[in-house]
Structure formats: structure tokens, C-alpha cells
């Protein structure tokens, strides 16, 4: 291959349906899973993993998310000491402990939520970010406990709390303990409210089930990323129940905005400045110069 061909993005036609992996060999090129444009991986990275051609928002992991929102200085992780246990000795086709181990190895995280105290354009905040690749961002006891510790820290320091959700819902492997995390996380927010502190909830692709139906919509301000799938029941379950085709764009962020379920849709690249502006107003801070 000549040097010229190496530089120019090749025109690749998708040959078969269902090829999901967008990363091409060597990680140099990346293909947008929405518009199929071929992009420099580094360009994509610099663009907050948003396709510069079509604006498609690729999923982020928890730490990428935190990097986009928090200033680099003065970060402090909360709740990393809390770790999962298999209290039901749960085993389906595989043991829960094995699934945990696998998820840990593939993501480098110990559970599906990373909570970080830090500053957003110099405004002190606590951010909780979901790790979707850790068992589908499912909510179990660890997630609940870390969330609560994050809220508690926010109350102690009199600072806002931000949560960026990406989850399939409750973690079945923890049985009713996982259901009760819906109650636990949501109840913690009453303390934040009593202290007069803002909770901003950011819904990203996907935010479903027990996460959607607990704290996610309780934000003082609820923001979604473009195109994010957000809902209580999964589209397949609904389709099976009602036996009719779902409307175009059903359960997407734009649909939710139309239905009055969320305050706004914000492009990821503007999320930080938007948050800074909103929080400053809620906290009656002077406008940024």
C-alpha cells in the first residue's frame, strides 16, 4: 500500500449487516457506526467521541466521561473502597463472581459506577458516572452505596451533585438487593434537596429500567445526550406486549423532549460549559466572564 493510500480514508462499503465493531485494525481508523464515515481514531477522541461528520454520540466509559466534565486538578475519588459481594451465591449459566471478575478485567473498574469529587470550570461538584461496559452498567449494592456516598459528600461540602447514567437497569444477580438500590439512591437525594443543593441528571445511551425509574428523572434539571435510548421497559418487551410496531424514534432523547420528559438535549461537546452555566445560576454565582 502506498503512503498516499495509507493517509487517505478508504471508501469502505459495508458488506454485511450486523458488523458492529467500528474500530479497524491498528486502531488508526475508526468507522462511525451511524453514518459509516471513516475517521481518524485520534480525531474522534479529540472530538469527545462524537462523529465529526454526523454528530453521532459514541458511548463513553466512566473515566472518559469524568475527564470531559471535571477539571484535571483537585480530583478525589469517592467510594472506590466499596466492593461487590455475591450474597445470593448466584449462578446461572455462569457464576456471578466470574462475571464480576470478567467485567473487572475488561473495564479496569471494580463496579459500574465511578464517583469523583472535583471542579467543573472551578465550580466544586461531585460527579457520578456509569461504566456501561461493567455488566451493562447494572445497578447493584456497590453502585447504590457509592452513589449515596457521593451525595453525602456533596451535602457535607455544600456542592452540587451530577450523575451521568448509562445502564440497562437493575443487576439481577443481586436479586431484591438490587431492586432496593432504586429506593436507596433516590431517598439519598432528599438530603441534597433539603440542603438546597442542585442535582443534575444526565441521561446517556442507554438509560433503562431501574435506573431510569429511580433517580434518573428526579434531577432538578434533566439533560439527555442526542439520540440516547431512554425508557422504563425495553423496546423488545414493549413490542412483545402490545404487538404493534413502535413509533419512529420511540424512547430516543428527541422523543422524550417532545413528550415533555426532559429539560433539554445537549451535545456532549457543550456539556461542560452548559453545566457550568446552569449550576452557576442555580447557586447564584456570578456569570462567567
Amino acid at each position: 500500500m502506498s503512503w498516499l493510500k495509507k493517509l487517505l480514508p478508504p471508501k469502505i462499503k459495508r458488506s454485511e449487516e450486523g458488523t458492529r465493531k467500528s474500530v479497524l485494525p491498528e486502531g488508526l481508523w475508526s468507522k462511525c457506526s451511524s453514518c459509516e464515515s471513516v475517521l481518524y481514531a485520534t480525531d474522534l477522541e479529540k472530538n469527545a467521541h462524537v462523529c465529526p461528520k454526523c454528530g453521532f454520540h459514541n458511548r463513553l466509559n466512566a473515566r472518559q466521561r469524568i475527564d470531559l466534565l471535571l477539571d484535571t486538578e483537585g480530583r478525589f475519588e469517592i467510594g472506590s473502597e466499596v466492593l461487590p459481594v455475591d450474597s445470593l451465591k448466584f449462578k446461572d449459566s455462569r457464576r456471578y463472581t466470574e462475571r464480576l471478575l470478567d467485567a473487572s478485567e475488561s473495564t479496569g473498574e471494580t463496579d459500574s459506577l465511578v464517583v469523583m469529587q472535583g471542579a467543573l470550570n472551578n465550580l466544586p461538584v461531585v460527579v457520578a458516572a456509569f461504566e456501561f461496559d461493567f455488566m451493562g452498567g447494572s445497578m447493584g449494592s456497590v453502585l447504590g452505596e457509592r452513589f449515596v456516598r457521593g451525595v453525602r459528600t456533596a451535602v457535607e461540602h455544600n456542592i452540587p451533585f451530577i450523575c451521568v447514567s448509562a445502564s440497562g437497569g437493575a443487576r439481577m444477580q443481586e436479586g431484591l438487593f438490587s431492586l432496593m438500590q432504586m429506593a436507596k439512591t433516590t431517598a439519598a437525594l432528599t438530603k441534597l434537596s433539603e440542603a438546597g443543593l442542585p442535582f443534575v441528571s444526565i441521561l446517556t445511551d442507554p438509560t433503562m429500567g431501574g435506573v431510569s425509574a429511580s433517580f434518573a428523572f428526579i434531577g432538578d434539571i434533566v439533560i439527555a445526550e442526542p439520540g440516547a435510548l431512554i425508557g422504563f421497559a425495553g423496546p423488545r418487551v414493549i413490542e412483545q406486549t402490545v404487538r404493534q410496531k413502535l413509533p419512529e424514534g420511540f424512547q430516543r432523547a428527541e422523543f422524550l423532549l417532545e413528550k415533555g420528559a426532559i429539560d433539554m438535549i445537549v451535545d456532549r461537546r457543550e456539556m461542560k460549559s452548559k453545566l457550568a452555566q446552569l449550576l452557576a445560576m442555580l447557586q447564584k454565582c456570578p456569570a462567567a466572564a
Binding site: 429506593a183 433516590t186 425509574a213 429511580s214 425508557g231 406486549t241 402490545v242
Partner: peptide
């Protein structure tokens, strides 16, 4: 369980459940 239907989603099934959890706590 809560009804998994199109209309239920359109009218905010998630919010309705979450709101109850929040309000009942206090």
C-alpha cells in the same frame, strides 16, 4: 410489574415511579 406499553412510556412511566420513591422516602 408496571405496564410496559407505548402510552405508559410516553407519559413518563420512569418519572412516575422514581417520583414516588423520592416522595415516599420523606
Amino acid at each position: 410489574g408496571a405496564y410496559p406499553g407505548i402510552d405508559a412510556e410516553e407519559r413518563g412511566q420512569s418519572e412516575a415511579i422514581g417520583r414516588n420513591l423520592y416522595e415516599m422516602a420523606g
